[in-house]
Structures are given as structure tokens and as C-alpha cells.
């Protein structure tokens, strides 16, 4: 599903002492069927960015086009005064095009296609059983009870929870299992675009690895995956492409190897461990080929190569 940001601005609490500009003039077409990482320091506008894709927020100015759905400001913008007649006409036509009227079912259709897994999603669980909770999404999007349960079972198996979990209470599970149930709750609606916000936060390394492997599998099955994270090791390891947000603007969009391995203080980011080590070696005069650096094994290969 093509996603396109056009002159998007977003301001929190406009015209109040708490006013803050989260996004400033974002123009970007998001890549499809790829594993994309969205990075930037706290407050750079990442979470606002992803909520616009899911129409949980509406832009203050500009618009976001997600497939056929246009997420536009609540009120149409008034034309500037100094326009000629033709310009005014063109302006009006443009406003008419953007200001789609959305019915409840349009928004639901959008959210079915764009799945958003929030940080600490285990706090959204509420049903008596695991399967019911996972089936909640599909049911909201119009599936019958049986269909929804079938989808729920599939999604649960996909995240690695077998049938022994189906009828248990989600509140009796461990933290890592709860997280899996919550993720299954989004996967059950088989979204075309999956956005995950810090999915590994608070998990132990083994559970974190499982979660990332799952997203990788989903991406390979043809879903676009957007990973919002502070953890650059994950970015280096999994992402095909990285988008850097800084101060409400997109400042870089490139493959991870192009971003990493240089001084990143200008973006308030730190290099992944492997790139950091490569950079330190480089400073001492050992130049490595970092073009396809993802993990420790690649780093060892690059070092062996350079030492030859």
C-alpha cells in the first residue's frame, strides 16, 4: 500500500502555552514491502509520524495519503488572499480532493490494513481468554465469530503460542507471552503494513530475538514493516532501510550501512555496537568494508578480510 506524506505539519496544543511542533513539513513516500527502521531521539516526532499513518491523529496542515485514504486536517485551509481567479479555482479543487469525507467504515478499513503495535502492547489485553482477545480485532473489522477465532488461532501459532494457550486468561501469562498475545492481536487482521513501536522494550534478550525474527518473517511474507526504535543494534541487524527524524523533519533516508559508521552526534544517535567497533579500528588505521555489516559475524569477516 503506497503511503505518501505531503507537506505534513503537526502541532500539539496549538495556541496554548503547551504548543509544540512535532512535525514540520514532512514530504516522503514510504518504501513498500521492506523492513524500514524509523529512528530519532525522544521527541523527534517518530510516534506522531506513525500515528498519522493510522489516522489516530490528523495533520495540522498538509495530508497523508495511505492507499486511497487521505488523512487531512479537520478543517479545510482557507485560500491565501492574493490569489488570482484561476489560482483560487485550482486551490479549491485541491482542497476538495484532499478533504475526503470519512465514514466510520473507511477509518476501520484503513486500520485493518495498517496494523500498529504500540509500546508495551500487553497493556491493551482485556478479554477473558487469549483467543477471544486476539479475535477482538478481526471481529471489530467485520469478521464473523468463527472466522475471527480461526484467524486468531492462526495468528497465535504464528507468534509461537500453541493451542494450550488459547483458552487461558491473558492475565495469567508471563510478560513475554502477554506481549506475544498482543502482537498476535494485530497480526490476526493480516495488515498490509505493520508498524511496531519499540517491540523489544522490557523483554529479555531471548524473547527480544524471537520478536524480531517474527517481524522479519512477516516482512518476507510480503508485509511492509516499520520498526520505531532507539536500539541501533536492531536497526543494523534487521532493517533494509532507515529513516532518520530530527526535530520534526526527515533528515535522512538510506540503507543502514550508509548511515552508520560515521559520527552520528548531529542526529543524537549512537552507532550500533559493530559499527562503533569498526569506527574505532578505522581511527587506528584499520579500514574495514562496512557495506554489508549487520552482526558480529559480519564484523569478524570484515576484520579477517582487512587483515589479509
Amino acid at each position: 500500500m503506497p503511503i505518501n506524506f505531503s507537506h505534513v505539519f503537526f502541532t500539539y496544543n496549538p495556541k496554548s502555552p503547551f504548543q509544540s511542533n512535532a512535525l514540520k513539513d514532512i514530504n516522503i513516500t514510504l518504501p513498500e514491502h521492506r523492513f524500514v527502521a524509523l529512528v530519532g531521539r525522544t521527541g523527534s516526532g517518530k510516534s506522531t509520524f506513525v500515528q498519522l499513518i493510522n489516522a489516530l491523529l490528523s495533520p495540522t496542515d498538509g495530508y497523508v495519503k495511505i492507499g486511497d485514504y487521505i488523512n487531512h486536517p479537520e478543517k479545510a485551509k482557507k485560500a491565501p488572499k492574493d490569489l488570482s481567479k484561476e489560482q483560487k479555482k485550482a486551490w479549491k479543487a485541491e482542497q476538495k480532493r484532499i478533504q475526503q469525507k470519512h465514514k466510520s467504515k473507511d477509518i476501520k478499513a484503513l486500520r485493518k490494513h495498517v496494523g500498529l503495535v504500540f509500546q508495551f502492547p500487553e497493556y491493551q489485553l482485556f478479554e477473558e481468554t487469549v483467543e477471544k482477545d486476539v479475535a477482538f480485532g478481526p471481529k471489530n473489522f467485520g469478521d464473523s465469530k468463527e472466522e475471527a477465532l480461526k484467524k486468531a488461532h492462526q495468528a497465535l501459532e504464528e507468534v509461537g503460542l500453541d493451542s494450550s494457550f488459547f483458552t487461558r486468561s491473558p492475565f495469567d501469562l508471563s510478560g513475554g507471552e502477554k506481549r506475544k498475545v498482543a502482537i498476535a492481536g494485530i497480526l490476526a487482521t493480516s495488515p498490509e503494513v505493520l508498524i511496531v513501536d519499540e517491540p523489544t522494550a522490557g523483554l529479555d534478550p531471548a524473547a527480544a530475538k524471537d520478536a524480531m525474527a517474527l517481524f522479519q518473517k512477516i516482512e518476507q511474507a510480503g508485509t511492509s514493516v516499520f520498526l520505531v526504535t532507539h536500539d541501533m543494534d536492531l536497526v543494523a541487524q534487521y532493517a533494509d532501510e532507515v529513516i532518520v527524524l530530527e526535530n520534526g523533519q526527515v533528515v535522512k533516508q538510506c540503507p543502514p550501512s550508509e548511515l552508520f559508521g560515521q559520527d552520528l552526534t548531529q542526529y543524537s544517535l549512537q552507532n550500533p555496537h559493530v559499527f562503533d567497533f569498526a569506527l574505532r579500528l578505522e581511527k587506528r588505521g584499520l579500514k574495514l568494508n562496512t557495506a554489508s555489516l549487520r552482526n558480529v559475524d559480519d564484523l569478524a569477516n570484515a576484520i579477517m578480510e582487512a587483515k589479509k
Partner: peptide
């Protein structure tokens, strides 16, 4: 028991495995 080695040790092990 699903615990990783720290970065330094895994790098050292990887290099050793490659014959260094």
C-alpha cells in the same frame, strides 16, 4: 539458558573460529 555472550566475547569467539 538463552543468555547471549557480551559483544567483546562473541567477537573474539567469531574471530577465533575464523582462524585468528
Amino acid at each position: 539458558i538463552h543468555l547471549d555472550a557480551p559483544f567483546f566475547l562473541s567477537l573474539k569467539a567469531a574471530l577465533k573460529a575464523k582462524g585468528m
